[in-house]
Every structure is written in C-alpha cells, then in structure tokens.
Simulated assay, not measured.
Amino acid sequence: MLTCFASTLFSGQPTFTLSEEESKHAVRVLRLPPGAPVTLVDGRGTVYAATIADANPKRCALLIQSQLFIAPRPYYTHVAVAPTKNLDRMEWLVEKAVEVGIERLTFLRCARSERRELKLERLEKIAISALKQSGQAYLPQLDELIDFEKFVPGLTPETTFIAHLEAGERTALSQVAGVGPGCCVLIGPEGDFSPAEIELALSRGIRPVTLGASRLRTETAALAAVFTAHIARE
C-alpha cells in the first residue's frame, strides 16, 4: 500500500490533495486507480486511511476514511552532530536515524568542522521518505547548523553527554542514556571536538561518554548513539 506524507492535513478534513510529486508517483508510476487504498502520515502522530477519489497525476485527491493517533514515545532521543564534508554521509545518517526513531537532530559547527554551511531542504526530503518507508508516525526536528559555543549553554546537563576521543574517564552511553526522560548526545567532526570545546561542555556539567572500543566515523557514531539510547530504554 502506498504511504504519503500529509504536512497540511487536519483532523476532520474529509479530503486531501496530494502534492504534484506524490500525485505523479501514485498515478503515473504506480498507476493507482480510483478507490485504491492509500495511507497518509502527518509526521505528528496521526495516521490516516484513505482511498483515491480522483486519480489526477497533478492533483490526486484522496477521501479520508479513518484516522488513528499514535502516542509519542515516552523517551526522546536528540543527537547533535558536526556534519561531514561529504554530504552523502549526512543523508545516510538522516535516513537511518529516522528509520530507527529519533526526535531531534541538530547540526553543529565546530572548530574542526570540514563543512561550515548546510542546507536542510534535501535532508528534510530524505527524512520524509524514511518516515514513510519505515512506518514511523513522527517526523524528527532537524535544526539548522549552529555554532557549538552557542548551542551548549541551552542544554540540560543532566541529560546531555559528549562523545569525544580525548584521554580521560568516560562512561559507556548504554549505562546512562536510559536514566532520565531522554538524552542528548554530542558527536564531533572527524578530527574530534577541540580541547576548548570539550572543556566548555564539561564546565557546563555535560558528562563524557564512550560508544565502544572502536573509533567510529562521525555518521556511524551518531547512529550508534541513537541505537544505544533505544536499547538503554528496553
């Protein structure tokens, strides 16, 4: 069954018109006729069962049959990561993190960052596609690129952790990620956080953690943090 994203659908609305891109996919590519079932997700917890009322390849109209609200997870996962120079690796991260389930993804501009600018439009489309493919009900918040120094002061230290590679005592994320109502994990660029950035985080009460013995790529570390946070809550 086709799953579509409905960013402007409201409760009680009997019909909905798909975007031109979604309409073309449904009518021209999949050749769905009137009466064919379609699932709509709004990214805010509501899933709608619908049928095609008008198979127009530019403005495919759907008739809403029923709706189901799915409660959010009682635990949030927030990862803040320095994007890599190769954007494909960030696209992979967004796709997989949405499939696993993440509430918020923030992009950091760090002292050793290779990428200093980032446009979210492409990443948002990938997130929506992953949402539809995986059957998730909630679209995560994607934050614009922000300087590390500006981002850290607004964090809650009790539920925030920094995964760095400098020497020193660190706790396994799996041991602390499931303690509070959620967690935020900071992941640095390929060259790691700078000593000054690590000191800033620690001075704010943010605790250092490890994701295991292996030295992971930035995007792999970020996804590992998402997996670990989920496993810690099971």
Rank of each mutant, 00 (worst) to 15 (best):
T3N: 12
C4P: 02
L9T: 01
Q13H: 04
T15A: 15
F16A: 10
T17Q: 05
T17R: 10
L18Y: 04
S19L: 11
S19E: 04
E21W: 02
K24M: 07
V27R: 03
V29I: 14
R31W: 09
L32H: 06
L32G: 12
L32Q: 10
P34R: 07
G35Q: 01
G35W: 03
P37I: 00
T39M: 13
D42S: 05
D42Q: 01
R44L: 14
G45Q: 00
T46W: 11
V47R: 15
D54R: 13
D54K: 11
D54Q: 15
K58M: 12
R59Q: 15
C60D: 00
L63N: 14
S66G: 01
L68I: 01
L68F: 06
F69K: 06
P72G: 04
R73H: 06
P74M: 11
P74K: 12
H78M: 00
A82K: 11
T84Y: 00
K85H: 02
N86K: 15
N86C: 03
D88A: 10
R89H: 12
R89C: 06
E91C: 02
V98E: 05
E99P: 00
G101K: 10
I102R: 06
I102K: 09
I102D: 03
I102L: 13
E103A: 07
R104P: 04
R104Q: 14
F107S: 04
L108D: 05
R109E: 13
A111F: 04
L118F: 10
L118D: 05
K119A: 11
L120R: 00
A127P: 09
I128D: 09
S129R: 05
L131R: 09
K132S: 05
G135L: 00
Q136L: 01
Y138N: 13
L139N: 01
P140W: 11
L142D: 10
L142G: 01
E144G: 07
E149Q: 14
F151Y: 15
V152I: 15
P153S: 08
P153D: 03
L155G: 03
T156E: 15
P157I: 09
T159W: 08
T159A: 14
T159S: 15
T160W: 04
T160M: 02
F161A: 07
I162N: 02
A163T: 04
A167T: 08
G168Q: 10
E169D: 14
E169A: 15
R170D: 01
R170V: 13
Q175F: 09
G178N: 00
G178A: 08
G178W: 02
P181V: 02
C183G: 14
C183H: 10
C183S: 03
L186T: 06
L186W: 04
I187W: 02
I187H: 13
I187L: 08
G188C: 09
E190C: 01
A196K: 15
E197I: 00
E199W: 01
A201G: 08
G205N: 07
G205F: 11
G205Q: 03
I206D: 12
V209S: 04
V209G: 12
T210N: 04
G212M: 02
A213K: 14
R215L: 06
L216Q: 10
L216Y: 10
L216N: 13
R217F: 07
T218A: 13
E219R: 05
T220C: 01
A222L: 05
A222C: 08
V226M: 01
F227N: 10
F227H: 07
F227S: 11
I231M: 15
